[in-house]
């Protein structure tokens, strides 16, 4: 394995073969445009992402009139991935949406570097890459057109979008699929295209909902590898998953945060007496 990528991180899924190592050097050409690396220095030595900590304090989430989880606390340091476990309906996807700022928590607070998300709703808008269950891709467009749209839409002019795009295509092995319209792809191939979106703009926090579903063994390994590199650069990730992934960082079983059966459905101002 590439020695540089392992700095400070234990191990990323053992299955990466040699061709992946070769891919990586191309991938970094894109990532490294942010802090220009000293000539010839190993690209992995620098941390492109500024130090940022994601924390959840006493989070509770409501779906309809049902409390899904409550009392959730976690802290995620740069280079760590938070793996969310729990049965269906335990609120994994809901938590990811809370963290993306797409929906507000029922109670509690999400903090990014100590700053409260509820105070500045747009705080995480450009820090987050959210790969949800839906793929955010258009059936009528080809793989290339899909990626090109996101690349250009997300591009802020400060990065070499072309290199980022090339890296994304390489890392997920999409070279042969570029001209094919999305509706002609298998679900695993689609998933890879949607994951390629993560690499189109360098953003520190990745929120991934079931990222490994529909992927074959080889591409699962590639994804783990990709995640490892993201973390090694000081990135953060939160993953909802059913698989045991070998990533550094805390894990949370949301089943432990489900409300007790007899608990009041929610504490609404309606119950306050005065």
């Amino acid at each position: 394995m590439d020695p540089g990528s392992g700095a400070g991180v234990t191990k990323f899924g053992g299955g990466a073969d040699k061709s992946l190592g070769a891919d990586r050097s191309i991938a970094y050409a894109g990532f490294m445009t942010m802090p220009k690396p000293a000539n010839g220095a190993a690209p992995h030595a620098t941390q492109p992402f500024p130090h940022a900590v994601l924390a959840g304090h006493d989070l509770a989430c409501r779906r309809g009139d049902q409390l899904v989880f409550h009392g959730l606390n976690f802290t995620l340091e740069p280079g760590e991935a938070l793996c969310l476990y729990g049965p269906n309906g335990s609120g994994k996807t809901s938590l990811l949406r809370l963290l993306a700022g797409l929906s507000p928590p029922f109670s509690g607070e999400i903090r990014w570097n100590g700053e409260a998300l509820s105070r500045t709703p747009a705080l995480l808008r450009e820090q987050v890459m959210f790969a949800g269950f839906s793929l955010a891709l258009k059936e009528a467009l080809s793989v290339y057109e899909n990626l090109q749209f996101w690349s250009r839409f997300l591009g802020d002019g400060g990065h070499d979008q072309k290199a980022l795009m090339e890296a994304a295509i390489n890392r997920l092995g999409l070279e042969d699929l570029l001209a094919i319209p999305l509706h002609a792809l298998s679900s695993g191939q689609r998933k890879r295209v949607s994951l390629a979106r993560l690499l189109l703009a360098p953003r520190p926090l990745w929120l991934l909902d079931e990222p490994t579903t529909a992927l074959d063994r080889d591409h699962q390994a590639r994804l783990i590898d990709l995640l490892g590199d993201h973390l090694a650069q000081g990135g953060l990730a939160v993953l909802a998953t059913h698989q045991s992934l070998d990533l550094p960082g805390p894990r949370l079983d949301l089943d432990g945060y489900a409300p007790a059966f007899d608990a009041p459905a929610f504490q609404s101002p309606l119950f306050e007496d005065g």
Partner: peptide
């Protein structure tokens, strides 16, 4: 609203 919150009136879901 209160009945629903207390779980007595089944909400649609």
């Amino acid at each position: 609203l209160k009945l629903q919150a207390l779980g007595a009136m089944p909400s649609p879901k």
